[in-house]
Design a protein around this nucleic acid. Structure first.
Lengths: 202, 202, 202, 202
DNA sequence: TATGAATGAGTATTCATTCAT
DNA sequence: AATGAATGAATACTCATTCAT
């Protein structure tokens, strides 16, 4: 249900095992390059080489370089949304503080798994014309947070969600870039920022 | 103490008027391009053309393309620091809340003057190996904020300063990117975030 | 006497029905692509896809892309010769004018059946190193016309045949390219050109 | 008055001598390659190498490969029109036969100067989206011939001009392709074809 | 000092062809 | 016989940088 003529969506949905492996190898190679060299080092030839395939093969799976990035972003958003949904579900009915904690924790877990990659992808996301699916994933995430806030009677839930996402991102970005990796410490600060904005006495 | 053989510092400290004008023209041209086309459109030929000089001349003032960006970043940091110093000075002895307000306001004023440019430069800054002077300017700014916090008895002033800068940037970035330009509204939200983190009842 | 190891002749003379059908499908796919996209769009993958087979299969029937074109040209020449032979036979003993009319008519009928294809093939023919059989077909056609001219006492029949073929092609080419498809009008003009060259008062 | 943003017109009108020479060298290199290898061998790297410049230089003068071809075509059309205008002027007032002779002769002279080049360019012209100037040159040529025919009372001068141009091209093309280079012989045959079509007893 | 012509390594992308399954 | 995944040389084009004038 994925393919189409866009330059952003993968070319062939791999059906054979070999195909799936190749496709995954390409994505992983791209991810690794993003982690180590940033988008500057991300050339199609480099990706193909690191993936152990030829450029031609790369282009059988992705119609353009951008499509590789787009797919990585899509996967990231998908994973992230799943994490958030899980977090929110667990904290259901336990008060805003618990819900916020759960989301902060999910977000951090996500970012600290592959910090450099998450960083790089969030940055690429800004310059990329996203495909519909990714746009939807982002909207779903936003709605999820807005919903939680509204359920707990938070004022102006849309704007608040926007700001909370923004400030969280600011803090995590900077921390990751500074090389921090102490989950608990970061979580405490992030919780403080979020709770502070919400006016919850943490 | 400005010039050197580094690829990041301008080649000649302009003493003559013409030189200064040329140099400024190049920088302004680069700034305008960053605003309109982002770093993707920033080619040396394009900059030179828009500045009304030849590429050769451009390379007489800047040893490499990066040096232009580095200089723009340096100027931005310099301006920003000056704004902050002024803000802090004005709010001296009037309590933390006022000091925070002044800084938030200074930061926002800075970002909203040329939003696209500020955005672009802050982004370039991350990928650039900064020259000593800029590094010092950033350190000064950090120290300034740390000083204010410490003076008002804030706990862990370094870390707090770091987080406040990070979350502010997160919020302003997102707002600018979303096209917001309502200074007052943005200021209110930013103040809320900062005050919240600091535990000040806004 | 058809197959050989040349890159221009089909690889296997299809004996089984399935083979013949596959071979025909490939040729028809190539023809359709030539008609719609010209030789620029004629990629082996595209041909295979449109023919409903895999590239591998395509290469089992044709040793190289050129071979497909060569075969299309061969078939075109074969058909054309057959048409001419028929035309000449019908007009036998009825005078030069009638013979010319018959040939002009046969030629036009041929070109207007699939105008874009005829055009494309005649063009490809020029850049292709033709196989013996096609060369023979062209020679036969030439001889046929030369024979008709000689039989009617035309001077320098070889050269005249050459020129008549050339000028006819020029007119038909241009007309087809201009999108003309009025058979009768075109026939009148073509007859006029041929008769004029021959000095027959039309 | 030449430059614009189109992909078909040259990029910079060379003002310095060196520029003019480089530009000419590129065009001549392209012409030579067309003569020897046809459009298949016409790669930008090949052209640049033969011209003795780098690819980068080539792209400073022409925004795309097509632009080189377009410029060659333009020059050819320009030369040809000039020749025709001269021919028509000379034959003015001397009857249709003389006018036709003059035009036939001009056309042939043109084609036999660099036969392979003329051939190649006329062919490329068909696949190229022509720039306005070239389109105008072709229209002028057409009008010139139409004018001559009309002046001498020829019926349906537009259609006749079209057919005469087409059949001439057919004959000359074929002759050139066959390696003929006997000007007088070719002229006689061409005159015969044209006169024949016009119903003039040659 | 200024110019702008020239450079050439580097980039994304295509496509005829091969070959393991 | 058939498939389609994989190959990689080739192609058009860009852009930071140099250098002769």
């Amino acid at each position: 249900m994925n393919a189409s003529k866009s330059r952003l969506t993968p070319r062939k949905t791999p059906r054979q095992e070999r195909s799936a492996a190749t496709c995954a190898a390409i994505l992983e190679a791209a991810a690794r390059i993003l982690e180590t060299s940033g988008s500057a080092g991300l050339t199609t030839n480099h990706v193909a080489m690191l993936a152990g395939v030829s450029v031609g093969t790369l282009y059988q799976y992705f119609p353009a370089k951008e499509a590789i990035l787009a797919e990585l972003v899509r996967q990231m958003r998908q994973d992230m949304l799943a994490d958030f949904v899980g977090a929110v579900r667990e904290a259901e009915g336990k008060g805003l503080t618990r819900a916020v904690d759960a989301m902060v924790s999910a977000s951090l877990r996500h970012h600290l798994r592959r910090p450099a990659l998450a960083q790089a992808l969030e940055h690429e996301e800004l310059e990329l014309k996203l495909d519909k699916e990714t746009v939807q994933l982002k909207a779903d995430m936003r709605d999820l947070i807005v919903g939680v806030l509204r359920d707990h009677g938070v004022d102006q839930p849309e704007r608040t969600a926007f700001d909370l996402m923004s400030l969280s991102r600011g803090i995590v970005d900077a921390a990751v870039r500074a090389g921090e990796s102490d989950f608990d410490d970061l979580q405490a600060r992030l919780r403080r920022a979020v709770a502070g904005y919400l006016g919850i006495l943490a």
